[in-house]
Design a binder for these strands. Sequence first.
DNA 1: CGACTCTCCTGGGTGC
DNA 2: TGCACCCAGGAGAGTC
Length: 284
Amino acid sequence: MPELPEVEVVRRGLAQWVAGREIAAAEVYHPRAIRRHVPGADEFAARLKGRAVLSAERRGKYLWLPLSGAEEALMAHLGMSGQLLVVDQDAPLEKHLRVRLRFVDGGPDLRFIDQRTFGHVMIAAMAGGVPEPISHIAPDPFEPAFDETEFARRLRGKHTEIKRALLDQSLISGVGNIYADEALWIAKLHWARPTQTLTRPKIAELVTAVRTVMAAALVQGGTSFDSLYVNVNGESGYFDRSLEVYGRRDLPCSRCGTPIRREAFMNRSSYSCPTCQRRPRPAR
DNA sequence: CGACTCTCCTGGGTGC
DNA sequence: TGCACCCAGGAGAGTC
């Protein structure tokens, strides 16, 4: 649920507080947190010891810390409830602490805390500038590598609904349920609109809406809808106050006053304005 | 192969 | 007050 803006907030904190430091030790408190690191916890810790963190990078919702030595990085995905916190090494261990990194400088730890355990960390080889496990995902809309023409071409070739496509990280990365609903509201598109019926100008409008809402969220430090999204210092952003549809069932649309509706879609909630976002005709 | 569903997980909230 | 249940949802595995 932390989406691109929240993950970017975390990346900036890691760049400031963790980059340039040498790892003294890694401790794994819950095996599920490293389930994608196939060699296991002991190998994970051994491979990190003595390596320096070179920088902090991001694509979509994925973060990675390139490491000194071999061409590999410590990669993280926050899932729904993951947090990467920079905390004093003497601070008490958090209830949902999953992985702890200590540094040779004796400064603050980097701790991965994750209540719902959908997030994970792993060490991954680099491949073409990104960790190999995420080589299949598309650039996010803030990267120079994001090709809007290619995105439009692939989108129009799909036989699916627009919201499903927005959440497909192989088409465009970084968009999750909250910002998908917000961007669709800005572009006045219903979530069920068939992708093959979208014109190129409408797709351009939608991409602009995605960038607009995410940039606005980033300025405010991200969204803190359920208080689990925090920066590396444990602080929440304020963008939830600016949400137009997400979580606003029965509240008036700021454009037309119609009560916002909540519908089930893909086993989750979709919020939209019944007037501004007309349901597409069922004909195909 | 593309489209779509299922599954993992925990704790806060709710209704009785 | 306690307990059963629902809900939040990203992404990979599995199904058709």
